[in-house]
Design a protein around this nucleic acid. Structure first.
Lengths: 338, 338
DNA sequence: ATGAAAGCGCTAACAA
DNA sequence: TTGTTAGCGCTTTCAT
């Protein structure tokens, strides 16, 4: 076993005390340039690496941040993780990722895991199921900085980073209107989550602006899964007077809509224009390619981490909510002009 | 700040020494049942949680494992991470995930990060670019258990978990043959990586078994990207005597093949049967749906972690290579009978 | 069965 | 500017 080098090894070789070595390594001002130089050189030569556990024990900080993600294999979250890792590692922090699997119990155990690991801060996106969020209070009570992103809630006071879901819903609806759609339906996500509320409200705002109302019977709400998408497709499309445009609050249900429409011989986009939300990677691959709202997960994760680390290093009580821009992406599923 | 409970707090309240508390908490045999019970109850009541940093410092183990992944937002790897986390957390380990982004320099820094974090073991899948793998020796020199998965190399002696790529290539080729294909081409991945070698060799073995040869000029090798797939599509399809079946070593290039075939009016699967490898999530969504070889990333990650943690807790010198099964998934892109 | 004491590697208050 | 010393919370040897 290649024995790890400690500050004591360096001190002994240099005939000085280990506290002097520590000061040299930490850029303390109360040290001579000459000594500092000698320490730094020897440390480099011996390949000295500080023992993280010892520093953590002494300093009560681990230079580690925790991440609570609903599902890692969702494109948006994978991107967000990339953003988090980028900012964190360039600032000397490690990241521990945990998954709630959209489940309240697992979300609780994620929090336990991260607190036990002694993370310096936590970034979280809450599980889809309706829950009371009270377990998040435990983080705040321990005075550990907390930043929510994307799936936020109003109940817990903390820093937040979201995308402009309202504007996304608004642009999606205006786009359908610009394509000449007159009977526009909407499949909304669970309305206990802010982001779905905002998408829906943005949608409604755009209709109002153009003196339109949502197509009668065309306001649905579900969990936006493939299965519920199929049910929604049947409800919306298996009727003589069906909508000519649908805005769905994610891309997944659009897959169900497209499949059902094809089965029924409904032509997309001419008889039915469809637009989703998220720009999942398959959106541009499927046929017809899917119009959608792009939300840049990387930026969300990056920004959330910036906010978190600032709060770790310069504690403060004022809370921020950062709203990042979205983009309308027009593809074949809604673009009648092509 | 809610002060954390230590064993000394428990000891004081119970009027015993902290070493006795430690023994009770660690199920040491040299302690009376009565004392143990009292300690455990009070610990529970006070919500005692051992300080991970202190234990790590004292025990020289962190109960943390490190993961080196080429790209987290690839479906296979996201699944593998799920498997790793599942096994790790149920066995009391945390996971630190790092990404190499298919880049040798970043791979080196991943290793530095993980070693510095003091992980007890490392699970890695190597970056796509050709490199000399020497940085991995540093892990072995420190006597830290190491398990490679999926992207392995022969140069480094360690435990390995892979899928049966050879059989995957074999089954893919046999399937095309069973569909009546006579002129079968193959787009291979970089042949410095074992898994691509194996897929290609399995393919060749199946042809040999059926006394066939690969279609002349139909053995291509590239990095299996969308762009290189387009070039390959042109090479293979823009010729009068084109192949009637193609096995590609991933699903990505199949996207390019399908797009080009449609543009050329080549009917899939009747004029051209296509099968890929990986079962990416979009494989069943695209049109025509894509036949492919399913490799279960979750199982790979799970198994790799099992192997790693066994090696951490019961050090041993004999090395294993575990090969997990794959599945042939037949969809429209190759299924002439439907 | 229990306690006292040392020490893991580091930082920082205090002394010189 | 440098050294001495104590202590972060835990485990473990040695003593009792």
């Amino acid at each position: 076993m290649e024995q790890n080098i400690t500050i004591h090894d360096i001190a002994k070789k240099l005939g000085i005390s280990s506290s002097t070595v520590s000061r040299a390594l930490n850029n303390n001002s109360r040290i001579s340039d000459k000594t500092k130089k000698r320490v730094l050189e020897l440390a480099e030569e011996l390949g000295y690496k500080p023992n993280a556990a010892a520093t953590a024990l002494r300093m009560k900080r681990t230079k580690t941040i925790g991440l609570i993600i609903p599902k890692i294999n969702r494109h948006f979250f994978a991107d967000a993780i990339n953003g988090v890792e980028k900012y964190a590692t360039t600032h000397g922090y490690n990241v521990i990722i945990t998954q709630s699997n959209e489940n309240e119990e697992q979300e609780k155990s994620c929090i336990e895991t991260l607190l036990h690991a002694g993370v310096d801060g936590i970034i979280a996106s809450i599980a889809l199921v309706k829950n009371d969020y009270q377990h998040y209070r435990k983080i705040i009570k321990r005075e550990i900085p907390l930043v929510f992103f994307d799936r936020i809630c109003d109940e817990i006071e903390s820093n937040k980073v979201i995308v402009d879901d309202f504007k996304g819903g608004f642009l999606a609806a205006e786009h359908l209107i610009s394509q000449g759609c007159k009977k526009i339906a909407h499949i909304a996500g669970p309305q206990h989550l802010n982001l779905y509320i905002n998408r829906t409200q943005g949608f409604l705002k755009a209709l109002r602006k153009h003196n339109m109302e949502p197509y009668e019977g065309g306001m649905l709400e579900n969990y936006l899964t493939i299965e519920e998408g199929k049910e929604a497709a049947i409800k919306l499309l298996d009727t003589p007077n069906r909508p000519d445009g649908i805005f769905a609050s994610n891309d997944t249900v659009c897959l169900s809509l497209i499949e059902h429409a094809e089965k029924k011989g409904i032509s997309i986009p001419n008889d039915l224009a469809i637009i989703g939300f998220s720009n999942e990677p398959y959106a541009k691959l499927i046929s017809p390619s899917l119009s959608t709202i792009e939300q840049r997960g990387y930026d969300v994760g990056f920004k959330a981490t910036e906010l978190l680390i600032r709060n770790i290093e310069y504690p403060s009580n004022n809370l921020e909510t950062i709203v990042l821009p979205i983009n309308l992406i027009i593809r074949k599923s809604s673009n009648k002009e092509v």
